[in-house]
Simulated scan of single mutants.
Amino acid sequence: MKIVVVWTYHYKGVETTFRSDEMAPAQALSVAEEISKTGRAKAITFLDEQGGTWTAKELKKYLKEMETEPANVVVYFDGGFDLGRRAAGVGCAIYFEQNNKRYRIRKNLKMDSIKSNNEAEYAALYFSIQELESMGVRHQTVRFIGDSQVVINQMSGEWPLYEKDLSYWADKIDEKLNQLGIQPQYELVGRKSNEEADRLATQALNEIEIDGKIELQ
């Protein structure tokens, strides 16, 4: 999560409002403390990337919680589709830090009622966000990495989205991200760079269930 510090400055009967650049929450608190020392800051507020307002007390509480919650989260996702069986396999590999240690979660799922490969890719992204919710990931920026040009470019706003089936998933994804306070950063990679998530999706199609977590050295 990035924070903008907004403060009203009072000097010789004149008041004006200033906004800082985006910065990490801890840096924002430090800047606010320095501004307060001038004795001329009438009001100081903190704005997150989604326009939410925070007090200094709330930010300090957030930083305390983040010491034990997942942080620096990176998600690789992929979906596979079998036209003959009208089935899809979705998978995700999630890398994160927690309690000064690094971890990786791998998870997949076989799904029915999917109509296309693009829909399977969207379902995979939503599946990964559901996993973030179960992990307790909240109010932070998360990198979502995939090899689907359609999903990455449409979710990032680079391409228009007209298909009804895909819009359904895109709306669900945006709603869930807003609910969790997650700011997504979408990144398109080649298939080879996404082979871990691709393998998980293929295993799901073959009814091989994966659900594991390991500590990384």
Rank of each mutant, 00 (worst) to 15 (best):
Leu59Lys: 03
Arg19Lys: 12
Lys213Glu: 12
His139Cys: 05
Ser193His: 09
Ile173Gly: 02
Thr8Phe: 04
Leu132Lys: 02
Gly157Ser: 03
Arg102Thr: 03
Leu205Lys: 12
Glu131Thr: 15
Glu158Pro: 00
Ala87Thr: 14
Met1His: 09
Glu121Cys: 13
Asn108Gln: 03
Ile145Ser: 07
Lys101Tyr: 09
Thr38Cys: 10
Ala56Lys: 15
Asp198Leu: 10
Glu215Trp: 08
Ala123Asp: 01
Tyr186Gln: 09
Ile44Thr: 14
Glu195Cys: 11
Asp171Pro: 00
Phe144Arg: 03
Lys192Gln: 14
Thr17Met: 11
Gly80Ser: 15
Ile35His: 11
Gly79Trp: 09
Ile214Ser: 08
Ile214Trp: 06
Glu187Phe: 08
Asn100Val: 02
Ile173His: 02
Ile44Asp: 08
Arg106Trp: 02
Ala170Tyr: 02
Ile129Thr: 05
Ser30Phe: 00
Ile35Gln: 13
Leu180Ile: 00
Ile210Ala: 05
Arg143Glu: 09
Ala43Met: 08
Lys115Val: 12
Phe46Ala: 09
Gln149Pro: 02
Gly190Trp: 01
Ile152Ala: 10
Lys101Cys: 06
Tyr103Lys: 09
Lys64Tyr: 12
Glu33Trp: 02
Pro160Leu: 10
Arg106Leu: 02
Met111His: 10
Tyr76Cys: 04
Thr8Tyr: 04
Val14Ile: 15
Leu200Gln: 10
Gly212Val: 11
Trp7Gly: 11
Gln185Tyr: 07
Leu29Gln: 06
Ile129Gln: 05
Tyr76Leu: 06
Ala93Val: 07
Glu119Phe: 03
Lys115Ala: 13
Phe77Thr: 05
Glu131His: 09
Lys164Ile: 08
Ile129Cys: 04
Lys37Arg: 14
Leu161Trp: 07
Glu187Ser: 09
